[in-house]
């Protein structure tokens, strides 16, 4: 985390020196390094789930707009750890925050709800 902060500082310093200060639109909370670590070692996807949960809570507390995709990424991690309901909740948040995601999110939510329905109707 600390090194990522350093990385961001370096990048922004470089951008300023280069004469094109790039103001950032979102607070990513280490998204890319968590995702990279998770790809390298799938056991670290759990750390990413916890990291995103904490980051989203932090964004809410400080009333910052969540970066695009963050809710859905957390939803996918929930889905992959077997929590379909929590996944649907996150996909819904993504859709409500970003109209561009509506087509995909609606399709995913529909499929998950269908899957749950079939599961619940299956004979025990």
């Amino acid at each position: 985390m600390r090194s990522l902060g350093k990385l961001a500082m370096t990048a922004s310093a470089a951008a300023m020196l280069g004469g094109c200060a790039a103001p950032s639109l979102y607070n990513w909370g280490g998204y890319e390094s968590m995702l990279y670590a998770g790809y390298k070692d799938p056991a670290k996807m759990e750390a990413m789930r916890l990291g995103l949960e904490a980051h989203i809570a932090d964004l809410e507390n400080t009333r910052q707009k969540a970066p695009p995709g963050i809710y859905a990424e957390l939803g996918t991690l929930y889905l992959q750890s077997g929590s379909s309901d929590k996944a649907v909740a996150m996909y819904t948040r993504e859709r409500n925050a970003w109209p561009e995601s509506k087509g995909l999110m609606d399709a995913m939510i529909r499929n998950l709800e269908k899957r749950e329905q079939i599961k619940s109707e299956a004979p025990k």
Partner: peptide, 13 residues
């Protein structure tokens, strides 16, 4: 890319 203002589909999803 998202910082340029585009909606970037969540890559892992």
């Amino acid at each position: 890319l998202a910082e340029k203002g585009y909606y970037i589909f969540p890559v892992n999803t």
